[in-house]
């Protein structure tokens, strides 16, 4: 019992949880900034830049705005971090240990966990008592309601295809036997529909309304400084790892057991990420109204089509 507990703790704190995800996430946020810079004809930051940023922020003064709720203000970033870490642990464990790593229903828990970082932004923004932060928080909330619907619909596709499997491990072994869901027609449609949701989950342009620097000065995070800001930045970087990884595992075959298939899995993840980064650099920010309309209109329709296709079995 204790041994199991320690293994779980190690998985949560070191691999594939907090430490591993944080390091990979920060490297990926470097990749994001570097690719962005290259698209803009710039040189871009050095490799260790995201690490310097986090260490620096940890060493800075923490200011809690007067009139704000201290508990909620300082607690919010931790909620987001915990959510992202637990999600990364569950996904990583399932991806590495295959069928034995998950438990029944973990895909549903993951859907909840992946919402936590966004909730943390809403909570933190609302707690800081700044009008611009409230605007940011309300935008994040609208966006969340917009993209969660198609996101959950898309998650139905693998569940239907596999005949009602609700565990990541089972989904992975199913894909290992029958080929990845993304190879079927419904899987492709699902992947297309989920891409804008991924963009919004990562709060990248065109769906970065909640943190729109030039409109609302950093929005929900406007009052944050020092360590809490570092935690938010870290959570964002970890989501850069966790969210695309989730899609690779659930829809696109995961990482398999051999070195070759693992490399292929990493390739898929990087491809997804670079696609996200390029989308971010070739689009202006859309209005929150347009974004919600977009998610409830075409994206939801596409997700429904994917579900229907899955139901008829293609």
């Amino acid at each position: 019992m204790t041994a199991n507990f320690f293994i779980a703790l190690l998985r949560f704190l070191i691999f594939p949880g907090l430490l591993f995800t944080a390091v990979v996430g920060l490297v990926m946020s470097w990749l994001d900034r570097k690719v962005t810079a290259r698209v803009q004809w710039r040189v871009g930051p050095p490799f260790l830049q995201p690490f310097y940023d986090i260490v620096k922020l940890l060493g800075k003064e923490v200011i809690v705005p007067a009139g704000g709720s201290r508990m909620a203000f300082l607690g919010a970033p931790l909620v987001g971090l915990a959510g992202a870490t637990l999600a990364a642990t569950l996904i990583g464990t399932a991806a590495i240990y295959g069928g034995g790593g998950g438990f029944r229903g973990d895909i549903i828990i993951l859907l909840y966990l992946l919402v936590l970082p966004s909730l943390a932004v809403i909570l933190g923004g609302a707690a800081s008592k700044n009008p611009l932060a409230s605007v940011g928080a309300s935008r994040e909330m609208k966006l969340l309601m917009g993209y969660e619907l198609p996101f959950i619909l898309v998650m139905l596709v693998p569940i239907i295809q596999s005949g009602g499997m609700l565990s990541l491990g089972n989904l992975l072994s199913f894909q290992a036997q029958h080929g990845s869901f993304a190879a079927s027609l419904s899987g492709v449609v699902a992947l297309v529909a989920v891409l804008p949701c991924l963009q919004a989950k990562l709060a990248l342009v065109p769906f970065d309304q909640a943190e729109a620097e030039t409109e609302i000065m950093g929005g929900a995070l406007i009052e944050y400084s020092g360590a809490p800001l570092a935690v938010f930045k870290l959570t964002k970087a970890m989501m850069l790892f966790t969210a695309p990884m989730f899609l690779v595992v659930v829809l696109w075959g995961g990482f398999g057991q051999t070195l070759g298939s693992a490399l292929l899995g990493i390739g898929k993840y990087v491809a997804l990420l670079v696609l996200v980064i390029l989308l971010r650099n070739t689009n202006p920010r859309v209005k929150i109204k347009h974004a919600v309309r977009f998610f409830w209109g075409p994206v939801t329709a596409l997700a429904l089509i994917a579900v229907l296709l899955a139901l008829v079995g293609v």
């Binding site: 004809w41 710039r42 620096k56 800075k60 950093g218 995070l221 009052e223 800001l229």
Partner: peptide, 22 residues
């Protein structure tokens, strides 16, 4: 910030809130 000078090479960013500034 622009391509010719690009201070992001030194890790510098222009931030929108004074709370984030160094």
């Amino acid at each position: 910030l622009c391509p010719r000078f690009d201070i992001e090479r030194f890790g510098a960013l222009l931030v929108g809130s004074v709370r984030h500034a160094d």
